[in-house]
Computed example of a mutant assay.
Amino acid sequence: MAASPLELVLARDRILVVASVVGLCLLAWLFLVHLTLQMETMDGIAARMMGMQTDDSLSAFIATTMGPGAATLTDASVNFTLVTLMWAVMMIGMMLPSAAPTILLFATLERKSRQHGISGRTAAFVGGYLAIWSVYSVAAAAVQTLLSHTHLLSMQMAATSTFLAGLVFIGAGLYELTPLKDRCLTQCRSPIEWLPRHMRPGRLGALHMGMEHGIYCLGCCWVLMLLLFVGGVMNLIWVAALALLVLAQKLVPGTLVLTRITAAVLVASGIVLLVHPLLPAHLLPWQ
C-alpha cells in the first residue's frame, strides 16, 4: 500500500530531525577529539603557557587553568568561558543522543498537529534542553577551576586524590538508589506519556518544555557527570563509556535492574579506592 502524503512528509521530517541531532553530536565529538589531540601535545602547550600566549588556541586556555593561574583577571575570565564552552560541547555529545527519542516524538506530534513542515518549536525545544545543560556546564567549569587551583586535578583533568575519587564513586552510586533518580529517569524514559501532559503552545512554550525535560535529565544524570573528574575530563574512552551508560539507562528495558547494578559497581569501586591506600602492599590482590 502506497504511503499517504502525510506519512511521506512525516518520514521526511523525521530524517531531517535525525540528521540534525546526529550532525550536532558528530560536531561535538569531532571538537572533543581535536581538543584531546591538542591537549596531548603538552610540550607545545607548556611553551605557550610560559610565553603567556593565551590567545593562541582553546587548548592553551584550558592548559592555563591546569597551571598556577592566569596572569590577569581578563585572562582568568576568558579562560573560564572557554572551559565552560568545552563542557557545553561535551554535554551535547554525551546527552543529546539519549534525548533523541523525545525530540523525534515531539517533532512528529508537531507535524501531525500542524499539517505543514517542522515549525520552529522543535528547534526551541532542543534549545531549551541544551540551555539546562549549558547552565550545568558553568557549574562544572567552576568546580574544575577550583579543583585545578587546589591541585586536585592532574594535567589530564583527572582526580589526583584516590580519596576524592572514591568519595565521588560512592556518592554517584548512592544517588542511583534515590527516589529522585528514579523519578527523573522515569520521566526521561517515557516521552510518549510525558509530552502530551506537558504540551504548551507557541515557541516559548516549546522552549519551556525543552527546559523542563532538560531538568529531569539533569536530575537523572548530573552525579554521573561528576565521574568525569575521576576518569579524566578529556579521557574520551571514559567520556564515551559514561555516555553509553546514560543512553542504556534511558533506552534499555529493565532500567531498575541496570541502575541497581550501576550503583553496586560504583559503590564497590569507591570503596576499593578508599581502602587501597590503607592496605599493606602484600595484601593487595594485584601485588
Score class of each variant (00 low, 15 high):
Q287P: 13
L8A: 13
R260W: 10
A206S: 13
F61Q: 08
L177P: 01
S161F: 07
M52K: 10
A165V: 03
H149Q: 12
H213D: 12
A263K: 00
G127P: 10
W29E: 00
R183G: 00
I215V: 15
L177Q: 08
V168W: 01
H213A: 08
E193C: 03
T41F: 00
T74M: 08
E193L: 11
L245S: 01
L284V: 15
Y129A: 05
R200C: 07
P68V: 11
R12D: 11
V33S: 01
P5R: 14
C184H: 05
V17M: 11
F169N: 09
A46S: 08
T41G: 13
L16I: 02
L58M: 14
A241Y: 12
R197D: 04
T259I: 06
K112C: 02
V138M: 11
T145V: 04
A124Q: 03
M211Y: 05
T150D: 04
G93Y: 04
D182G: 04
I261K: 02
Q287M: 14
E212Q: 10
T65V: 07
I62M: 10
T72F: 07
T84C: 15
P280D: 04
M1F: 14
G69Q: 04
V246Y: 06
H198I: 06
P68F: 04
D55A: 08
P196C: 10
L16T: 09
A263R: 01
C188Y: 06
I192S: 12
M157K: 10
A139D: 08
G128Q: 06
D13S: 13
T64C: 04
M66C: 07
T64R: 07
K250G: 00
H198A: 06
I261P: 11
L204W: 02
Q53D: 05
C221W: 13
M86I: 06
I118A: 15
V275Q: 11
A123P: 03
L247V: 14
